[in-house]
Nucleic acid binder design. Structure first.
Lengths: 140, 140
DNA sequence: TATTTTTGTATCGCAAACGATATAATACAA
DNA sequence: TTGTATTATATCGTTTGCGATACAAAAATA
């Protein structure tokens, strides 16, 4: 049963690396007052200004049942605004508040800070990124 | 702000790939009646027969606050048994029930079935495994 | 031996994550 | 136009995941 050994599986390192990565982000994101998934929503909004719930779910490949409550928490914190579209009342428009816009400045140092905390070369990071992206595109 | 773009981050593909992987496992594990983290506990127990809560948390790098409730659910399902150690009453011994032992047979096909569903070569899988393992060892 | 520290689990509260289901608004078809 | 299908979000219930805290047993120290 070699195949059932924890060390031989690709799934376990993937699962663990993902959790460890979130744990590494957590103290830095705490200074912004957001969680890791909330940070992902911010990354989308810093790129797109105005978007919809559906666009966010597509971009992050998460379900509405995950995103809706998360956005509500971010609205409570006054980081974003949610508003039904006038043109299509099924859609909910999502925009940053000024507070949300301002957070981008502080966030700039986060990616580099974390890059440096790993001893990965540019090549290794590129390889890892390519393999993970390939995996995602195959399965999704 | 190139560094803040979703596509340029290593964290997002890692996070997404991990979730997609769990989603790929889910239908197969459903035939066993377990979730992905419960499957990880089974992998440990299929290797070790008798272990403790602490050993499981170390092996899976998860907190007691995650493992204890999870083990209680597995005990309810009669997959495992939990019992305070006589030698050291702080420890809780965890063992498989016959039902838990028997599940190993069915589980054998799972790793291969999922390997094949990806179009990854042995080299790619090896590279991915090595990079993820390196990352985990650095950060943990 | 008495006290302090460490170890091993457990509990609590909160935020994901997701399948299943519900429900309006819009699009499409008869 | 009326009925039907699709789309966009939301809600609910269950399981994770984790930080903070609690607590008893064992180990270390005074």
């Amino acid at each position: 049963m070699e195949s059932l050994k924890l060390e031989n599986q690709i799934c376990f390192p993937l699962y663990t690396a993902s959790r460890i990565m979130v744990q590494a982000y957590t103290p830095l994101l705490k200074t912004l007052g957001v969680t890791y998934p909330q940070y992902l929503v911010l990354l989308v909004l810093w790129e797109e200004e105005e978007t919809t719930v559906g666009q966010i779910t597509k971009r992050l490949q998460l379900e509405t049942s995950t995103i809706t409550p998360l956005l509500k928490r971010m609205e409570q914190m006054e980081i974003i605004q949610r508003k039904r579209s006038d043109l299509d009342e099924r859609k909910v428009m999502v925009t940053l508040t000024q507070k949300g816009v301002d957070m981008k400045q502080k966030a700039c140092m986060i990616p580099e800070a974390l890059m440096e905390s790993t001893n990965f070369s540019i090549e290794e990071l590129g390889t890892l990124h390519a393999l993970l992206t390939k995996f995602i595109q195959q399965e999704a």
